[in-house]
Each structure stands twice: as structure tokens, then as C-alpha cells.
Design a protein around this nucleic acid. Structure first.
Length: 419
DNA sequence: TCTGGGGTCCTAGGACCC
DNA sequence: TCTGGGGTCCTAGGACCC
């Protein structure tokens, strides 16, 4: 059996843990740069604030309905996430951390008969008690079905108490007939359109399509999904989550038309990618740099470009990645464009201790200990005390975060005060 | 009349997820 | 004034190999 443990309205719930005034209130969390709504409490959903709402268009609505609007606080959410996930390890060793707010777990060595509903309840209760985060738990014989069960648990909290188990053919059919096709994991907008034309409205209808039809009109992915929904375990738990690509991309608070500001941003994004690489002990072969104008400004000239650089040897040195990225961005930058967004993506990742040596070219051996020192100093003193010379040393650059809550769990100055 | 067969690797684009 | 960020996988087609 598999379980999907999903944190309810995760970001909004994290904020509530440390600010009890938000309990029972409508709460909305904004994306980076305070752009649009990316998490809502149940109350905010009930009032009708949609997902993805650009806040500048919904400001009056939020005010009128007394919705508490906050900037996103990723250090807090990331830390709360790892607390939740580590609690799950007490229940089973087989965990796939699927996203910041949900994990699949598998019950491999559990002897039947076993009371999964009771176990699910214990999981919910402990996470709530130890972290303050409410969760929903769906349990079923396959991953796709555990996703469905999770939706049932979430939708009917009074009846399910937040835990739903699909453990019979009857319950499987009932749940599949209940869930709309567009709410099925793996069926997005494009597929929904095609399926509705086939008069396929629920997950159950989907499982009634022939394998041949699915294979000709879609791909192997959808066929696997069908089998999983039929109760035949097809999708496996993926415990090794070493990333295959790492990106840092951001919109700017304002637009930039000069290369200097953009070079600084690219260097900072490249440094951030290099740090993430070192954290997962990988090196990269390829660096992609992208630059684009404001896509919402239809009347000003648009420019969207990217370029990639192949390295002659893999690296995770901030110096090399930053240099390559800055050189690359200079080659694609065009005068007269108002740029609003830029990014660095590193790909072709290999384990850092398993690099293919190059006959003609290799990394300066001093970089490795240098990066180690930088990482440990930044970890010890925080706030990126050590930077490259081509980064913003005066901290003039900032993300718009006008409604940010304190970093309660990751910054000693922000620790909560008990009266 | 009639022109093989079996592979690999890479890339761009498209679909999906949170 | 103002609209996020970070991932995954699959397919088709082209280039190349013997």
C-alpha cells in the first residue's frame, strides 16, 4: 500500500503556526515579488479569491473581505517542510518527498491485516501536534489511487477525519466515478480537452478507454496512469531525488535596460545554482542563461532569448559558473530592451566525486577547498557574507516583499517570544 | 519493376506536476 | 505601477554509426 500525505494549504498553514491571530481568518500568500496568490486558507477559498490572482487586481477585494495577505517566506516553509517530512520517517523508511508539501510513503513490510486507517490517523495527529501543520492522508494500493484517496480525504473532512483508505474494489470504483477527469494527477488542461471530446468526464471513464486508444492518441505516461488507476501498481516510489537540473530564475522589481545590472543579477543567480549543486554534491556540464522582457507589456518591444554553454569539464565552482554565465549573458543582451526577468539553469549533472577527467583542460584544484570555505562561512554567519566581487555588495537589489513574516525557525533574531 | 537493416545520441518542443 | 518559480518525462526528427 501507498500513502500520500499532503499538507493542507501549506504556506498559509505555516504562517498560522507562528501567528495564531490568523487562525480561522482568510489568509493568502503571494509569489515572489508579491506578484500573485499562490496559497490560500480554506476561508479565503470560500470567499472566492482564486489561485494565481494578480494581487494588484485583487487588492480591493482582499481589503473588503478582510483577507490577510502575506509575502512568501521560503526559509520558513522549507524548514517546516523538512520537519514534517522527518516525522514521516518514524512511520516507514520508504519515503518519496514529492514536493515541498507532500510525500508518498510505501508500506512495504506491513503484514496484513493491518489497520491503515488508524495508522493514517496517527500520522496526521503526530504531524499536527509536533508542527502545527494540518494534513490529509490518502491510502491505496497504487500511487495514483493514493492521490485520489487524498482528494477524498481533503474534500470530506467531517466524514473522513482527514484520512481515506481505498482498500476494496467497491471503494476504488466509487472514488474514480466521483473524481473529475481534470482533477486526476497527470491529466492537465491539454489532455482534459481531448478526453472531454471523447465524452470522458471522470477518472472511471478514463479507465474504460482501451489501451490501444490511449497509446495511439497519447503516450506511455497516460497508459501507466491508467494501469495505476486500475489498481495495478505501475508507478514506483522514487526515493532518490537527486536533481537532474537546477535553476535560479527571477523577475526583477523594476525593468533593467543596462547590461551592468543584468550582469550582477546573472552572477548572483549563477552563484546560487553553484551552491545548490554543491549541496546535492553534483557538478554540471552545461549552463543555460536566459533573459526576457516583460511579457505583460504588449506595447513595448519584446525579447526572449537563451543560450547555453558547454563546459569542457564538469564543475560546481561559483567562480567558473558565474564567469561563464556573465559572458553568455553579454552575448545575448540587446540594447533598447527593458528586461524584466533573467535566469541561470545548470544541466548535465554528474556526481561531483565522479567527474570525467579532461585531457587538455581541468579545474584549478584550489577551487574545491575555496568553495568549501565559502559555504561554511556563509552557513556560520548567514546572509551571504561571502560573495563574488561581481555581485551586488551594497545590497541595492531587493525582491519586493512588503508583507513578510519573520523567519521564526531559521534566524535567531526572529525567534518567537513567549510572553 | 526492383535501391537494407539496425542501432545510438542529441535537441526542441510539448505535456505534466507542485 | 503591479501578473512566480522550479522541476519531470516523453516524442519526433535529424545526424551519425556499422
Amino acid at each position: 500500500m501507498f500513502a500520500l500525505v499532503d499538507c493542507n494549504n501549506f504556506y498559509a498553514s505555516c504562517e498560522r503556526v507562528f501567528n495564531p491571530n490568523l487562525q480561522g481568518q482568510p489568509v493568502a500568500i503571494l509569489s515572489n515579488n508579491d506578484g500573485c496568490v499562490i496559497s490560500r486558507s480554506d476561508e479565503a477559498k470560500a470567499i472566492g479569491l482564486p489561485m494565481g490572482a494578480p494581487i494588484f487586481k485583487w487588492e480591493a477585494f482582499c481589503k473588503a473581505n478582510n483577507i490577510k495577505v502575506l509575502s512568501s517566506n521560503y526559509p520558513l516553509y522549507g524548514d517546516m517542510s523538512s520537519r514534517v517530512m522527518s516525522i514521516l520517517e518514524h512511520f516507514t523508511p520508504d519515503i518519496e518527498v514529492y514536493s515541498i508539501d507532500e510525500s508518498f510513503i510505501e508500506f512495504k513490510a506491513f503484514k496484513k491485516p493491518f489497520d491503515f486507517e488508524d495508522y493514517g490517523n496517527q500520522i496526521r495527529t503526530r504531524i499536527l501536534k509536533w508542527t502545527g501543520i494540518p494534513t490529509s492522508v490518502g491510502i491505496a494500493p497504487t500511487k495514483a489511487l493514493s492521490k485520489v484517496a487524498n482528494k477524498v480525504a481533503r474534500k470530506f473532512p467531517a466524514r473522513t477525519k482527514g484520512v481515506y483508505v481505498i482498500d476494496s474494489e467497491e471503494k476504488r470504483i466509487k472514488a474514480l466515478k466521483w473524481i473529475k477527469i481534470e482533477d486526476v494527477w497527470g491529466i492537465g488542461m491539454g489532455l482534459t480537452k481531448k478526453l472531454k471530446r471523447k465524452n470522458c468526464k471522470t477518472a472511471y471513464d478514463f479507465t474504460q478507454l482501451s489501451n490501444e486508444w490511449i497509446r495511439t492518441h497519447f503516450s506511455i505516461i497516460e497508459l501507466r496512469l491508467k494501469r495505476d488507476l486500475e489498481g495495478i501498481p505501475t508507478l514506483q516510489l522514487e526515493e532518490d531525488k537527486t536533481k537532474k537540473a537546477i535553476a535560479t530564475t527571477r523577475s526583477f522589481e523594476y525593468t533593467y535596460s543596462d547590461i551592468d545590472n543584468i550582469k550582477e543579477r546573472i552572477s548572483t543567480f549563477a552563484t546560487s545554482c553553484a551552491e545548490k549543486l554543491r549541496k546535492q554534491k553534483s557538478s554540471c556540464h552545461v549552463i543555460i542563461v536566459m533573459l526576457r522582457s516583460d511579457r505583460h507589456k504588449k506595447d513595448s518591444p519584446q525579447h526572449k532569448v537563451s543560450t547555453s554553454v558547454n563546459l569542457s569539464y564538469p564543475t560546481n565552482s561559483s567562480l567558473i559558473i558565474s564567469n561563464c554565465a556573465v559572458n553568455a549573458v553579454m552575448s545575448i543582451f540587446k540594447e533598447g530592451i527593458k528586461y524584466k526577468r533573467a535566469g541561470v539553469i545548470v544541466m548535465g549533472l554528474v556526481p561531483e566525486d565522479n567527474v570525467q577527467l579532461n585531457l587538455f583542460d581541468s579545474e584549478n584544484p584550489k577551487h574545491y577547498p575555496l568553495m568549501n570555505s565559502i559555504d561554511s562561512l556563509n552557513k556560520k554567519y548567514g546572509d551571504y557574507k561571502i560573495k563574488l566581487g561581481n555581485q551586488d555588495l551594497k545590497r541595492t537589489w531587493k525582491m519586493r516583499q512588503e508583507r513578510l513574516s519573520p523567519r521564526y525557525t531559521t534566524n535567531i533574531k526572529d525567534i518567537i517570544v513567549v510572553k
